[in-house]
Amino acid sequence: MSSTLDRLVMMANQIGRFFTPQRGGDAVAGIADHLEKFWDPRMKENIVAHWRAGGAGLDGPVREAIGRLKEAKRGAPLEAGR
């Protein structure tokens, strides 16, 4: 793996592959909840930025879940220097 972003995309898809077959049929909610609860703000910011840029490499439910993150809903990158 070459970059942090590549790693984040891969990790997000791994999370997606766990939640997709779970009972209840709302994998997207499970993925989004996991990202909210376990990813640091800069990781979320990076993946949201990538999603905004087209989200290459992200699986379908993962893409949808990222759209539900607080960072995505804010519509703008986090303020610098958090």
């Binding site: 942090t4 609860k37 376990f38 990813w39 640091d40 703000p41 800069r42 990781m43």
Partner: peptide, 13 residues
Amino acid sequence: AEPGLRIPNMFDA
């Protein structure tokens, strides 16, 4: 209230 970095994430950051 936000989670922090895990060790591997610290390395990436």
